[in-house]
Amino acid sequence: MSASIAPKETIMSEHMEKAIAAAIADKLVLVVEDTSSSRILVSGLVRGLGAHRVVSATDGIDALAKTLDKDLVPDVVLCDWVMPNMDGLELLTRIKAAHASVKFIMMTVKTEAEAVIMARQHGVDGYVAKPFTRESLMTSLAKVLGVSL
């Protein structure tokens, strides 16, 4: 694979993997992806990292509807940017307005500076460039969960 599309990867020690697993074990993770293979992939990887509670949604509207249930307000949102009906940026804005403590990670191919700045201005906590790997998800989750690398 060419370097231009390869995701940035960080080598994680076994100790670090255990730290992330401990940090994410009791967290509710909401995966928002309109593409089913990507949704299943992210959910599977996050479960593999130690999350016991993973919920998925097909777009921003579906995600917001789920968060109306107080038992489904997530600790961490992993969200695609480009989706039909309601995109990731609008979902970010709405979720942060209702639940400021929710950690929001945007997963996207939009890696140009303007997109990153725009996401930050809307309060994004983390960023995962697509195509992603287990390592790139780990790195971003570690950051938002306060696990030092």
């Binding site: 593409t35 089913s36 293979s37 949704r39 299943i40 992939l41 959910s43 599977g44 990887l45 479960r47 593999g48 790997t133 287990r134």
Partner: peptide, 17 residues
């Protein structure tokens, strides 16, 4: 990185996608 069931599921889902 994925368990066996998720590995199969995600590839079937890609075909649908």
């Amino acid at each position: 990185d994925l368990d066996e069931a998720d590995f199969a599921l995600v590839h079937d889902a890609l075909a649908d996608d």
